[in-house]
Write a protein that binds this DNA or RNA. Structure first.
Lengths: 246, 246
DNA sequence: GACATCAGAATGTCCTGACAAAGTCTTGAC
DNA sequence: GTCAAGACTTTGTCAGGACATTCTGATGTC
């Protein structure tokens, strides 16, 4: 039961020790080496086994608790969560998600232009109405089938967008490459019926149910760096969210 | 700029010190005493001001960073997040959410029975197919308008459900009162068209877009304690989610 | 046999101390 | 005037220790 974890630490690495530990434990959970319900040794023993202090070991465990992979109970111990919880929705883009799931995502840029901000966009980006912003409209496909229509608005001058790179990399990767540090986002998920134009693009019938998601993303200065308003084919896409009570 | 926070600590209280600090800072942010963008003193000064150690002060700040209220940058400092981010989706029920928003929620129990678990329910609750489980069907209204049809399945013997209390309190409050410690949940949000029966109950037309949410909730032993499959009127309900990059 | 009490085990909280890394700003050289 | 190097500030990481709180299980009593 109290399996001594085989974890190797590299103290010369710039990667924090607690993170090295967390990553390797996560890998073992994914691989099934640590099955659901498995009880870990107590923090002090674990720390001793790896030659770490208890706070560092705690930090590693806490990281995985926050991720929803482990559960701690005072007086009892730490257990691997008994569920195949999907990774929680993270600050990632649809492109990243699809690429990870190896769904062969492709993107077509339908529109890219500088436009004056409409009221809703201006509110979301916290700029005066009418300010010039960059507007993007893209069609995202997975495995050849159209999946989503994506509208994005960005403050002007944030980064140089090119059609080629957008189609090859996705918006979020471009922003990250431009040293934009996205920190918090506010998502709203809803549903509505497809308009005729949307239906044509998505190979659906008019009135077909679509999943809608609008999101405003802020960087670490609190500046809004992106506002997106997307629709997804409900038959092909769902959002998965893991919730952890702390 | 570097405003000395007026925070009172009660060291005799069972409430952890870091939590007392976090709560009071949060209250000041909500009240506007700490406006968006305000820079806090550095951790060491704050800790000194309150007579705390730096780790405790850090824990308080970290708590608020996780909640998306503060942002830290190494070499720079800690700032109040510059956005009116809604509180993130938490392990709460629709009833709680509505009650909080004072939307006068009402519930009608349409069905309550012990039934053998169908395959999908059995998988979600991790019981053998055919096991007796409690099934609930409820209609949730807000301000007199029908809002959602909710199907729930619970393992048998978890708690004594009564129609009256379900209609007055909501399922989650009953579970909490029965000492069920809900810890993690797995949500899936999608959309589909309303069936005829659903349309009638919800005062919508057949084929109208509905928001769907299915959720499995686990307690701190990893046992599945509830599986729910709900549909919401897309015109009346959306999910709000706040994401914080750590 | 059922229930209360107590010891043990594990995490939760809090402390002090130290060094590393990253960002900002000033200083200085060219 | 511009750019780079270095000082300074601030958070990030890590160590080791102490006591509190909570849960489990065993012990003992009625």
């Amino acid at each position: 039961m109290t399996n001594s974890l085989s974890i190797t630490l590299d103290r010369t690495s710039p990667v924090p020790l607690y993170f090295q530990v967390a990553q390797q434990i996560e890998a073992m959970i994914d691989a099934g080496t640590l099955p659901a319900g498995h009880r870990l040794d107590n923090e002090i023993q674990l720390a001793d086994q790896m030659g770490l202090s208890r706070p560092t070991m705690r930090q590693a465990i806490q990281h995985l608790v926050d991720k929803g992979l482990l559960v701690r109970k005072r007086g009892v111990g730490t257990q691997v969560v008994h569920s195949m919880v999907k990774r929680s929705v993270e600050l990632s883009s649809l492109y990243d998600d699809l690429a990870l799931a190896s769904k062969r995502p492709t993107t077509t840029v339908l529109n890219m232009a500088r436009v004056p901000a409409e009221d809703d966009v201006a509110v979301a980006l916290r700029v005066p109405p009418g300010t010039e912003v960059v507007h993007l409209q893209r069609l995202r496909c997975a495995q050849g089938e159209p999946l989503a229509i994506m509208h994005n608005w960005l403050p002007d001058g944030l980064t140089d967008l090119t059609v080629e790179r957008l189609e090859q990399r996705g918006l979020y990767e471009m922003l990250r490459a431009a040293a934009v540090h996205m920190r918090v986002a506010n998502q709203r998920i809803g549903a509505r019926a497809a308009t005729l134009a949307e239906a044509k693009l998505l190979h659906e019938r008019r009135g077909a149910p679509l999943l809608t998601m609008s999101r405003t993303t802020y960087d670490d200065n609190g500046r809004a760096v992106e506002y997106g308003s997307h629709v997804y084919r409900a038959t092909l896409y769902t959002f998965e969210i893991a919730l952890v009570e702390r």
